[in-house]
């Protein structure tokens, strides 16, 4: 693997980070990065959406990615999962040191990457239980007996406060927003990924559902799971505490910091990031990271 020169975007980030603090884009840590995104450029139908994203996530870390609608957050999540509509035109995505760019979505899923969709698609006629069984079999490589599968399923469903009749319904067909998000987290709990990308999992949830879903996610985090939590609002970060927060704007990560950055954003809005980026953000990050 040749030495990778950090491109412009990463360099800019380096500038705004006070020295001495380990931030995610520096891979000098002892822990091996589970995900290293380097200067990623992505186009959809020849329109460039991501314009040089760099981001490193180490094993067991929880990162939040915030930003306005249209800033490229969902493009990043689809690209990480391998959606064929999103074309990588430059840069690399290294998962456990291996370049994912040419790997189809199903192989990524079997390797331990999971995407909780912002808008999970309905598949009429395919029951949740049949689907979950097929997915678990694909991820683990072995088929569970119906008894084992039911037992595991029941535990996870209880935790997410889901009723049994969920299983005979068709995937996301006629589901409420909260039901869809619960199903995304239920799948995650069964597939046991090593890297989970949660795309606006908080959107469309009332406060009780948000607490339940966040509880489900918290129960899974730990040394074996790294999380990239994509969100528009700070609200879910009251329940899930990230070690790192990144702000995305116009296809680039323009600001990175600790969990306090989320509160700063909530208080001051995204415009604050845009205006006088260098000076303001320097000060803000310094303040945010101050002990």
């Amino acid at each position: 693997m040749p030495n990778f020169n950090f491109p412009a975007a990463a360099g800019w980030q380096a500038k705004i980070v006070p020295g001495g603090r380990r931030l995610p884009n520096e891979t000098m840590s002892q822990t091996k990065p589970i995900l290293a995104i380097k200067n990623l450029h992505v186009s959809v139908e020849d329109k460039e959406i991501l314009k040089g994203v760099s981001l490193t996530i180490n094993a067991g870390e929880v990162h939040a990615l915030m930003g306005r609608t249209g800033s490229g957050k969902s493009t990043l999540s689809y690209t990480l999962m391998g959606h064929p509509r999103y074309k990588v035109t430059a840069g690399q995505i290294l998962y456990k040191g291996e370049d994912l760019t040419a790997m189809p979505a199903d192989a990524r899923a079997r390797a331990g990457i999971y995407l909780a969709f912002q808008y999970p698609v309905a598949i009429p006629g395919v029951s949740v239980s049949n689907f979950l069984r097929a997915a678990v079999k694909a991820r683990r490589g072995t088929e569970l007996t119906i008894k084992e599968f039911r037992k595991e399923l029941r535990e996870q469903m209880n935790r997410l406060e889901m009723k049994d009749d969920f299983l005979s319904r068709y995937i996301n067909d006629g589901f409420s927003g909260g039901e869809k998000k619960r199903l995304e987290i239920l799948q995650m709990s069964l597939l046991k990924p090593e890297l989970a990308v949660l795309d606006e999992t908080d959107s469309g949830l009332d406060i009780d559902a948000l607490k339940t879903v966040a509880g489900g996610i918290n129960a899974m985090t730990g040394p074996d799971l790294s999380v990239l939590l994509i969100t528009h609002y700070q609200r879910i970060l009251n329940y899930i505490t990230p070690q790192f927060v990144h702000v995305m704007q116009e296809g680039r990560i323009v600001l990175s910091g600790g969990s306090e950055l989320a509160h700063e954003l909530e208080a001051r809005g995204y415009d604050w990031v845009t205006q006088e980026p260098a000076a303001t953000t320097d000060a803000a990050v310094a303040q945010a990271l101050a002990p």
Binding site: M81, G82, H83, P84, P104, A105, D106, R108, A109, R110, Y114, L115, F117, P120, V121, I123, F131, A134, A135, A138, R139, I171, Q187, L191
Partner: peptide, 10 residues
């Protein structure tokens, strides 16, 4: 894509 993202082949 949704099903493939859960590990099922195309």
């Amino acid at each position: 894509f949704y099903l493939m993202s859960r590990g099922l082949t195309e």
